[in-house]
Design a binder for these strands. Sequence first.
DNA 1: GCTCGTGCCATTGTATACAATGATGTTATA
DNA 2: TATAACATCATTGTATACAATGGCACGAGC
Lengths: 241, 241
Amino acid sequence: MKGVAVENGASEAVGGGSNLSHRIETLLRERILKWSYPPGLHLGEIALCAEFKASRIPVREALRILAEQGLVDKVPNQGCFVKQPDVEETQQLYDMRLALELFVVESLASAGSLSLDWLKEQRVYWEPLLAVKADDTADRDALVDADTLFHFGLAEALGNQPICNALRDINARLRFVRLAAITNAHRIQETAGEHLAVLDALEKRDAEAARRSLRQNINHSRNKVELAIGRALMSVHKKRG
Amino acid sequence: MKGVAVENGASEAVGGGSNLSHRIETLLRERILKWSYPPGLHLGEIALCAEFKASRIPVREALRILAEQGLVDKVPNQGCFVKQPDVEETQQLYDMRLALELFVVESLASAGSLSLDWLKEQRVYWEPLLAVKADDTADRDALVDADTLFHFGLAEALGNQPICNALRDINARLRFVRLAAITNAHRIQETAGEHLAVLDALEKRDAEAARRSLRQNINHSRNKVELAIGRALMSVHKKRG
DNA sequence: GCTCGTGCCATTGTATACAATGATGTTATA
DNA sequence: TATAACATCATTGTATACAATGGCACGAGC
């Protein structure tokens, strides 16, 4: 381990990879996802070079990757801009997620290849949340992570790498919006119920029921997120005006 | 300047994008897909620099993109290698394609949003192929293109950009293998029949039937490709031995 | 004969520099 | 005042150069 002597003013430890490109990429992604860089912000290569005290090469690499993942927009001769939340695109990403996950649960139900340990583990997590109280200030980040683990765990159980990768990418593009997906106690209960329904169906190897429950879950989430994007855009506009 | 005696006579005009990275990327992809670069071939940055008379920067970019698309493997401290056809990965890509396309036809059938023009156009193309003769030396490339257009047309009709992009990527990764998918008259007839069945189901807005026919079509294709990969690998091994 | 250390080399990451392209802003003229 | 030509700047693509890391082979020592 070597001491990382070169760091920017915000000297938070960047867990990221070993090379500078990756560190910059991680930092940028973090700031974009946390809205620390507001949507529409111009990300000039030279400005970023100054900010990270790096040359253009690593910055370019980072921007390229973020552009591929859809977190920044690359306008041909003007530079990069922090992606604006886009309702239509978000809906479409949700649809793609739905497409992949429907297939996943259908396959899992047919194959019955889901480990019982995992099923139990998920049950243990979600069942208590059926009775969550309104004023329960549950850790939202933890909930979002658990939700991710639930969905991602299904995909992993199928063992299809391309599908897992695609879902990971979709998740990255949706995450800064999904923070708003689980907002209140009602939605937490609802989510828990839907997840448990999926688990039940998988255990019974009922593919149709699994598809139905999963579709319900994702569509509910999608609807919440649509509202959240509206709010977020409004707030951004307010800040600008 | 080092006199590296690498002469590629391929001075053909590369239609590709305007920048060097993109041209190199296109050339490399072409050669990999055409098996002009055999699987496992080491693609050293410096060798490629010499070959394309470019500096490392564009070459790196090209290699990176190809690595992302899965056409080359990037081994941490050894460089890039032309991807070996991988039966398991191919199967998984087919599964992912199936996942996306099942959702596409299901949605299209439910929404009934497929243009009648497109339906007719596809019918006109595939119906004659039901009666193709054994010795009919149809243009295989044209058939593969038509097949691609059929499947891609469905996705486009749904208008979901992320799904279209994903399918395009999958196609790129499968293409050098799919050339072997439609091999004989029997399979051509079968394919035509399956496609027409999908079209019928979509016209009747029967989502289940559409899913069934599409699944059949893709699974048949998948099976053929599995055999083709086996043959290809065998041939490569023979050449090596 | 086997194992371990060392030095060389390929790969990789990064920095700096230069050319070209397209956008923007300014000024001069009608 | 409006428009057109021009100057300037930001972005982008590319080249060359240097540092660092890890692998591999060769040779020395046990």
